[in-house]
Write a protein that binds this DNA or RNA. Structure first.
Lengths: 128, 128
DNA sequence: CTGTATCCCGTACGATACTG
DNA sequence: CAGTATCGTACGGGATACAG
């Protein structure tokens, strides 16, 4: 599974192409990581994983320490990036619900891979 | 369905334990991501993937735009984190070689998973 | 050759106040 | 309720100079 590669070219669904150079690889990973950059994005992601739907105030309550500004800002970015779906109900008082997109949900396995990797870290041999 | 699997507890090799709460998951992913944070870490990583061994000046030349300060700094962090091995040859002039540790090499599949995920991103429907 | 020490700056983030 | 506006700050990172 972790198969780094072999013949991926001309695969029928043909979306994913192995980066051809180390530089390209680094750049593409950086681009992927940019979707996760931001003090609160991962927290939001995990609150919404599993198809959960939360409204603004619920997220605010669920995430201790976040300010309205930051919550709003990060949600907007995630929406623009296609990670999050935002649904506005034209009511009074206003209600806005947030959920992950399919693509957002699909992040889960990749994060899992990262978690698995991190969990294999050898203990430092020196006393640092 | 975030839940990729079910009973992981008491697995024989028993190293990896699924995070029990969203918060824990977010925190652990953040910790994992911290190993990759830094303007030049990924570039360095990709230069060293595949078991390549490079000395300081070689990395400097291979990474356009990096300063000695940053290169040194990021390499030190990666060394402390256990991603990179640093070998000093007590010669004149000094020679220092850098390579990835096993754990560092093992990052590759996880990054691949991230790359695959990113490659499935739907095109924006709006004109942004 | 392989670094460290200073100085400087942009930006991400936090706190607070205000609005439809 | 669900945000935006404004201000202040901490820190990562660039440029440059110096050192073993």
């Amino acid at each position: 599974m972790t198969r780094t590669h072999e013949n991926v070219r001309d695969s029928p669904e043909g979306k994913y192409e192995e980066p051809q150079t180390p530089e390209a690889g680094a750049v593409r990973v950086e681009e992927a990581l940019k979707f996760l950059e931001g003090r609160w994005k991962l927290v939001i992601l995990f609150k919404l994983f599993g198809g959960r739907v939360l409204r603004f105030s619920a997220l605010e309550r669920a995430i201790p320490g976040v300010s309205q500004k930051m919550l709003s800002q990060q949600l907007r970015q995630m929406e623009r990036d296609g990670l999050v779906q935002r649904v506005v109900y034209p009511e009074v008082p206003p209600r806005v619900e947030y959920a992950l997109t399919e693509w957002g949900q699909a992040l889960c396995p990749a994060l899992d891979a990262l978690l698995r990797w991190a969990s294999t870290r050898p203990a430092s041999t020196d006393g640092s």
